[in-house]
Amino acid sequence: MFGETSGIKVSVFPVFSKSGITQALHHARLIRPGDWLVLVLGLVAVGVLITRFWLGERQGERLLIRQGGAVFLNAPLTHDLSADVSGPLGMTHIELVGRRARVLRDPGPRQLCVHQGWISRAGEAAICLPNQVSIEITGASKQYDSLNY
């Protein structure tokens, strides 16, 4: 389908060509009123999420390891440690060194949580979905704690 179809030349990735997004956006008929609305609202949503989740409390205080929804370990970042958590696929190895934590090894097929590398700030998490293990850094107080007082 891509390439030459009955003599019509169509760029597979117009993004990188001159007739790409920049020109396309200026092409009055491509972007409709509803599209502008969606694009602007989408940007607003992204902005709200960034302020809500990234610009809030950043200082990490504790490491929270969960296995299958239950808390496996909740320890302060001040003391280095390593932990082996067993899940349905095998052992997930986690280490905490110098106020940063990472998943060292995981039996999951795609290794997403391992590739995520070090996490250190409040709210950051690495999730090994296949083995049902997750690590999360929490702050001094979770934001909803203030509601309790």
Partner: peptide
């Protein structure tokens, strides 16, 4: 899948 885990922390990236 992972109840209780703060997956929304990465939501700005995904959004």
């Amino acid at each position: 899948m992972m109840p209780g885990v703060n997956v929304w922390a990465s939501s700005p990236l995904f959004a």
